[in-house]
Simulated assay, not measured.
Amino acid sequence: MAAVDVENRGPVVWIRIDRPDRRNAYDLDMARAMTAAVEDAAEADAVVLTGSGGSFCAGGALDRLDDPDPAELRALFTASLRLVNAIRSCPRPVIAAVDGAAAGGGNELVVACDFAIATRRSTFGQTGPRVGSAGVLGATNLLAVQIGEKRAKEMAMLCRRYTADQALAFGLVNEVVEDGALEEAVARWLGGIHRLSPRYLEIAKISSNQWWHQSADNMNSGLGMLLQAIGSEDMREGARAFLEKRAPEFRGGRSAPAPHEGAEQ
Rank of each mutant, 00 (worst) to 15 (best):
N141Y: 05
G125Q: 05
V98I: 14
R92F: 05
M155W: 05
A101C: 08
L172C: 10
A116D: 07
Q146Y: 03
V98L: 06
L109T: 10
I147G: 02
G125D: 09
E149A: 14
T163F: 06
F124S: 03
A152N: 02
R151C: 08
T163Q: 08
F115S: 14
A144K: 13
D114G: 12
A42I: 12
M157Q: 07
N141D: 14
E108P: 02
M155T: 02
A112N: 01
A167Y: 03
D40Q: 15
A112M: 07
G171P: 12
G148R: 08
C90Q: 07
F170N: 01
G171Y: 06
E72P: 00
A164Q: 05
S133Y: 05
L83S: 00
A46S: 14
S55D: 14
C113R: 09
G54F: 04
V48E: 03
G135M: 03
T50S: 13
D67P: 02
K153N: 12
T123C: 08
G125N: 04
L62H: 07
A42K: 15
D69Y: 05
G51N: 10
L143Q: 01
D40E: 15
R161C: 13
V98M: 03
A102N: 06
G138T: 00
V173S: 06
P68A: 11
R92P: 03
V98P: 09
E149D: 13
